[in-house]
Structures are given as C-alpha cells and as structure tokens.
Simulated assay, not measured.
Amino acid sequence: MSYQCPLCYQALSLQAHSWVCENNHQFDCAKEGYVNLLPVQFKRSKEPGDSAEMINARREFLDAGFYQPMRDKVAELIQTLLPEDNSVVLDIGCGEGYYTNQFYQNLKLHNPQVYGLDVSKVAIKYAAKRYSSIHFCVASSQRLPFCDASLNAVVRIYAPCNSDELARVIVHNGYIITVTPAPRHLYQLKALIYSEVHLHPLKEEHFDGFNKVSEHQVAYMMNLNGKQAFDLLQMTPFAWRASEEVKQTLAESKNFECETDFLIRVYQRHA
C-alpha cells in the first residue's frame, strides 16, 4: 500500500527518500523516517497539534503504564478482528506512538502494515525515532492521505476525524475502533477545575455504511504522585481551564487518586 498525494490525490510511490506522485509532487522523508503530508497551505497554524511540552508529558505518563489496560484491550480487539496476514491499520491522532506500537506488536507475526498519523510534527518526530517498524506521517485527519478502500482498520482514540474519509479509506468488512470518555472518566481531575462536575454524556456515534458490532468499558482507579498528576493534566483539554493554583496543588500532591472510564466501540463496514 502507498500513500496518496494530498494535493492531487494520485498514489505516491517511494523513490529513494521521497514520496512522489505522477504529477511530480514530492514529499521528502525526514531523517527519522516519517513523511510530512501536510502542505503549508493546509495548515491552520504555524505548528498545529500538541506542543513539545504536551507530548513530553503524555509520553512520561503513558510510559508509566497508567493507560495500559485500555491500550491492551484495543490491541487485543485488533488482533482478534484482523487474523489474516498483511493487514493495514491506521492509528489516527497517534501522538508519540504509544498505542500504535502495541497494535504493531500484537499483529507483527502476520506481516502488518501499521501507520500512525498526527497533525503534530513534534509528536510524529518523537514516534518515528522510537518505533522504526511503523510508518508515521504528519497529516490532517480531515483528509486522510490514503487511497480508497486501502485500510483494514482505523483506530481513533479521542481524535477527531471526518466520517466521510473513514468510509472512503476502509475496505468492505473493515473496522473503525473508537475510544471515548465514559461517564466518570477523570472525574476527580475535573472536580479540581470546575465548581460543578458533569459526567461525560454517552453519545452514540453513527458512521454511514457501518454497523456497531461491539462495545466495551474499561474503568479503574489510578494512584498518581504529583508529577504524574500534573502530566495527566497537561495531556488533557482541561489544562487550558486549570488555574495556576490547581496546577501547583497537583504538582505538590503526594498521592492523587483519579478514575479512568473508557468506552471502546467497534464498527464494521457493510456497504
């Protein structure tokens, strides 16, 4: 499988260290191995996506294993759903590659092609340096740089995406796997920031041409020290609303107990 040109939508082929289409649009591979398929005219800001500070916080928190049960459940589902050789899997909003690598590890005996996509160049650079067996690209999830009907599964952990694009790139009988917050996700963290805490609403998602085939909830309590609690805050949207006092309280805490509550849904393409 190859990438698709983000400018003219023709297939890209790898020539030396560049991806090139028949119209001679060229995208060079970085020294870390990833390719940037987000042309400057498509950017909404100079450096879109998570900053280096946010990526470092996320990497340290995830490496400590606090979200491992959710990651392992998603990886197990992928392994069960894609038993055949040469499956092609995309992780949208892959960040620094923590989840993406586990998907690859679970499938590697079946010669998979695993791709990670994120709009943050910093995140993709970190991911490509650490996980050389995975294909990483900087690109927008609103216009996926992949050919029609070329992916067996797409994983979307919190990341936004254009549902029409998912229908375009996923093969018949292929899968979308989503992870979203269930009602009590990070309840105690929210309680520090908001005077009134609302549970996450359980919203049903609908993807044209797909049926929901299963749903799984993963929930447990985390015990965090101050650094870990602060890193957790930094990797969530709540960081923008947190006061300096809240940030200091978290950073200085000796033990912060916080719930996780993940909702994992699997959809299969039928049309």
Rank of each mutant, 00 (worst) to 15 (best):
Q4V: 07
P6Q: 06
P6V: 10
C8M: 11
Q10S: 13
A11Y: 03
L14H: 10
W19R: 06
V20R: 08
C21R: 10
N24Q: 12
C29I: 09
E32S: 14
Y34D: 06
L37H: 04
L38T: 08
P39A: 08
V40L: 14
K43L: 11
S45F: 10
K46M: 14
P48W: 04
G49D: 08
S51I: 14
S51P: 14
E53P: 07
I55R: 13
F61N: 04
D63A: 12
D63H: 12
D63V: 08
G65W: 07
Q68W: 11
P69S: 05
D72H: 07
K73Q: 11
A75Q: 09
I78D: 14
Q79C: 12
L82D: 03
E84G: 05
E84H: 13
V89I: 14
V89K: 06
E96A: 09
Y98F: 10
Y104V: 02
L107M: 08
H110T: 13
H110R: 15
P112W: 05
D118P: 04
V122Y: 13
A123W: 12
K129D: 15
Q142S: 14
Q142M: 15
L144W: 03
L144I: 03
L144D: 02
F146S: 01
A149P: 02
S150M: 01
V154W: 00
V154H: 00
R156T: 12
Y158M: 10
A159N: 04
A159H: 03
N162V: 03
N162T: 07
A167R: 10
R168C: 07
V169T: 13
V171F: 04
N173V: 12
Y175K: 02
I177S: 11
I177F: 09
T178K: 05
V179R: 00
T180C: 10
P181H: 11
A182I: 11
Y187D: 12
Y187H: 15
Y187I: 12
Q188I: 00
K190I: 07
A191V: 03
Y194P: 02
S195K: 11
V197T: 09
L199R: 07
E204C: 14
H206D: 14
K212V: 03
H216P: 01
A219W: 09
F230W: 03
F230L: 03
D231Y: 01
D231E: 12
T236W: 01
P237W: 04
R241N: 09
E245W: 00
V246Q: 00
A251I: 01
A251H: 01
E252P: 13
F256W: 07
E257S: 15
D261M: 08
F262M: 00
F262W: 06
F262N: 02
I264H: 00
Y267H: 06
